[in-house]
Each structure stands twice: as structure tokens, then as C-alpha cells.
Amino acid sequence: MEPVLEVRDLQKYFPVTRGIRQKTGGMLKAVDGISFDLYRGETLGLVGESGCGKTTAGRTIVRLYEPTGGTVRLHGQDIFSLSEKEMLPVRRQIQMIFQDPYSSLNPRMTVGDTITEALEIHGLAAGRRNERVGELLDMVGLGHEMAGRYPHEFSGGQRQRIGVARALAVEPQVIICDEPVSALDVSIQAQVINLLEELQEKLGLTYLFISHDLAVVRHISHRVAVMYLGKLVEVAPSDQIYDNPLHPYTEALMSAIPIPDPKVESQRQRIILTGDVASPIDLPPGCRFASRCPKVEDRCRQEEPAMVDVGGGHLVACHLVG
């Protein structure tokens, strides 16, 4: 099967400005060479702790940030080589939803106008835009009668539904969801997760689901990619990642997640990480996790481990595996 989206060696560096004279002090390597494929109808979870580069990766893929290096192909077409005008149809095919829908919604526009605007930009549903807005609002469970309301009249969970409706308006194939449920309470979070799952089944959508919450990611994703300091350290089908994590960072991350069951919790062994996280401005020569890795060996500090395929679609970048 051909992937919908192919990401190869994606890089995004930010120049570091230091001091009052704004002298540049090197590069912050937020995303430093990540590769993965997204297949139609699947959800790939992208997890990792804050600052590891998840948001930057998502935004660079859709060229909200200009890439430093690498390629992204949508149905085989290299989208980084396109002009801004040529990008328009691509933007229709890849949409993004954000953690804080409020900041991405115009407070002075009604929900209906916000969605209509998206339709206009892409010349969609001409002549029946109001009807289409109603359909979309019904589809995300808000109800068409909400079209005349303003963002501040909605709760967090409802605003996220507005964000989803706006993304769906242009009939995308891929949606990059950046922490879409992280700000929501669990009971509301479950509503939005179910909505995303139902829409995927109904419309054949493909998701890149970015989150720091591994329990959510396990639930919603078919495959999971674990990111650490700008690089992927492990990619595997979601059950594999939980039942058989191979990278020491993935293992520590799994063991750190509390499980809402006192019997399970009382039996668990936690791997407590010590040591400081390396700086993305001043990366160490070897494995980026070496400073905190409980299994670190000498070569880890010298040589960067390459991603190896251990079979069954399970990829790991660690000297001790492979």
C-alpha cells in the first residue's frame, strides 16, 4: 500500500538569539531528522515529553514553519518544493487541529462565519454554504442551530468540536491533531476522542495524533512513534509499544504512567530516571538519551544509534537493540 504521507529526514532548526544584541548563538534543533509514513485510515500517535519537538514537527509538515531540511510527500508529491500558490490544494488535503481551539478561533466571528470562511478559501459548497455549515456542525455533535454563536459562548470541549468542524469543512484526507484533548477534563476528553474515532471510520481520515498522554495515544492510535529531543527513538504498532517497549526511554515512559487501578498500581515497578535532559541547543555527540539512560554504555556517549527494523514494523534506535 502507498502511504498517504511520507516524511523523510524532516528537520527544523530555530536560530538561538542571545543577549541584548540578539547575536545568534547557534541553532536549536527542535526536529532533527525524523522519518515516518502515514497510511490511509490509520492513526499514528506521536508522543514524547514537552519540548521534544512534536508541535514543531506537525507545523513543519504543513509548512506553517519553513523546513530546515528533509522532504514531505503527499501522495508522492514533494510539498516542500511547491510555491505558496501551489500549496493551496495541499492545505486542503492536510488540516490541523490545535490544543487550544480558542486561540485559533476569531472571537469576533460566529462559528458559522468561521466555517464559511474555510469553505470560501477553497471555493467549496458554492451556493449551499449555509446548508454545508449546518451539516458540519451536526456531524461534530454541536447541532446546526449553533451557527450564529460566538466562540466565547462555548465550553472547551465544544470549542474543540468547532475546530474539528472547521478542519472537516475542506474535506481533508489527513488531519494533524496537536494535543486536541489535552486541555479537556476526562469526561469531555472521551467525547472528543470518540468523535475523532467515529469521523475516521466514516470518512476514512488519516490522523497524526500528537500528545504527551500515552494512555490516550494507546487508545486512539494504530501505531505509535516515540520522540525524544528532536528524534524518533521507537516506532511500533500500539500494542507492541506497550507490551514490548524496546527503547529504554519508551520503557521508562511506560512505567511512569500511573494506571487508574489500585491493584495494578501496587504491583508496578517504576523506572525512575535521574540525570538532566540534554539541551537541544548543545546536543551531545552520542545517543541523546544517554544522560538519563539507566542502561547507558560507553559507546552510547560516542556514537549516535541508527534506527533499525526489528521486524513486524517495530523500529528502534538504541545500541542495545538490534
Binding site: V186, A190, L214, A215, H219, I259, P260
Partner: peptide, 24 residues
Amino acid sequence: WGLLRSLPRLDQRKERLVPIPGQP
């Protein structure tokens, strides 16, 4: 019940979460 059912769990594969409808 609602609170516990709406939680995704790391150690289990749930088909669908059961949210609490509505808002606080």
C-alpha cells in the same frame, strides 16, 4: 462510574470510551 469509564488505560485496549454526556 462515568469518571472511571471515560478514562483510557495504558494497560488495556478498550474498544470505545464511555464519556459522560453534556457539560458540568
